[in-house]
Simulated assay, not measured.
Amino acid sequence: MTSMGSVRWKALLPGRRTRALPSPTARGELVAEAVGLRVALGGRAVLDGVGIGVRAGEVLALVGPNGAGKSTLLAALAADLTPGAGEVRIGGRPAGDWTAGELALRRAVLPQAAALTFPFPAAEVVRMGRAPWAGTGREDEDEAAVALAMAATEVEAFAGRPFSALSGGERARVALARVLAQRTGLLLLDEPTAALDLRHQELVLRVCRERAAAGDAVVVVLHDLGLAAAHADRVAVLHGGRIEAAGPPSEVLDAEVLSRVYRQPVEVFPHPRTGVPLVVPVRSGPHRDPAPPHLHDPDNSASLTGP
Score class of each variant (00 low, 15 high):
residue 3 S to N: 02
residue 6 S to T: 14
residue 7 V to D: 12
residue 28 G to N: 08
residue 34 A to E: 08
residue 41 L to V: 15
residue 41 L to M: 13
residue 42 G to Q: 14
residue 48 D to E: 15
residue 57 G to H: 13
residue 59 V to A: 08
residue 61 A to W: 05
residue 64 G to K: 02
residue 68 A to Q: 00
residue 70 K to L: 01
residue 70 K to C: 03
residue 70 K to Q: 04
residue 74 L to Y: 09
residue 79 A to E: 04
residue 85 A to N: 12
residue 99 T to V: 06
residue 100 A to M: 07
residue 104 A to W: 03
residue 108 A to R: 04
residue 117 T to R: 12
residue 127 R to Q: 13
residue 131 A to D: 05
residue 142 D to V: 07
residue 148 L to G: 01
residue 149 A to C: 11
residue 159 A to P: 05
residue 162 P to I: 08
residue 167 S to C: 12
residue 167 S to T: 14
residue 169 G to R: 13
residue 174 V to E: 01
residue 177 A to T: 11
residue 178 R to G: 07
residue 179 V to Y: 05
residue 180 L to V: 13
residue 186 L to P: 00
residue 187 L to D: 01
residue 196 L to S: 11
residue 198 L to W: 13
residue 201 Q to A: 15
residue 206 R to Q: 14
residue 207 V to G: 00
residue 212 A to V: 01
residue 223 H to N: 02
residue 235 V to H: 04
residue 237 V to C: 06
residue 240 G to W: 00
residue 246 A to W: 00
residue 249 P to V: 07
residue 253 L to N: 03
residue 254 D to Q: 09
residue 259 S to R: 00
residue 262 Y to W: 04
residue 263 R to S: 06
residue 263 R to N: 08
residue 291 A to P: 04
residue 292 P to Q: 10
residue 294 H to T: 06
residue 302 A to T: 06
residue 303 S to M: 02
residue 304 L to E: 09
